[in-house]
Simulated scan of single mutants.
Amino acid sequence: MAERRGGVVPGSDALKSALRWLSEQRTADPAASRLKLIDEAALRFDLAPNDVEFLAMNWKE
């Protein structure tokens, strides 16, 4: 269903959890650096390198 709306559905549970966490962090601190948050999410959720690359290329507010 997300594909029909033009969204992207992440594959791993870790990536889904990271996306949720990133959203919460962005709400709590809108001025936080996007790349710094992605780096922290990578460590916190033990993301694979391709998941980190996905976030860096596709995660928008």
Rank of each mutant, 00 (worst) to 15 (best):
E53Y: 09
L43V: 02
V52R: 13
A28K: 15
A18C: 01
A32D: 06
D51R: 07
F54L: 11
V52H: 02
R5E: 10
D39M: 07
G6V: 00
K60L: 04
V8Q: 05
D46H: 14
S33N: 15
L22Y: 03
R5D: 06
E53I: 00
R26G: 00
E53S: 08
A56T: 15
L22I: 01
W21E: 08
L22A: 05
E61Q: 10
A14C: 02
A14Q: 15
N58P: 00
P10N: 10
L43G: 15
A41T: 10
P10L: 05
F54Q: 05
A28G: 11
R44I: 03
A31M: 13
A42I: 01
P30H: 09
L19S: 05
E61G: 14
F45T: 04
L47H: 06
D39G: 12
K16P: 02
L35P: 00
V8L: 12
A31W: 04
D51A: 15
S12K: 13
W59N: 01
K60I: 04
P30G: 12
D51M: 07
L19D: 00
I38T: 11
G11K: 14
N58G: 07
R34Y: 06
S17G: 13
G11E: 14
D39Q: 13
A56V: 14
A14T: 12
S12H: 12
A41W: 08
Q25P: 04
E53N: 10
R5A: 10
N58V: 08
L19E: 02
G6R: 01
M1P: 07
A28D: 09
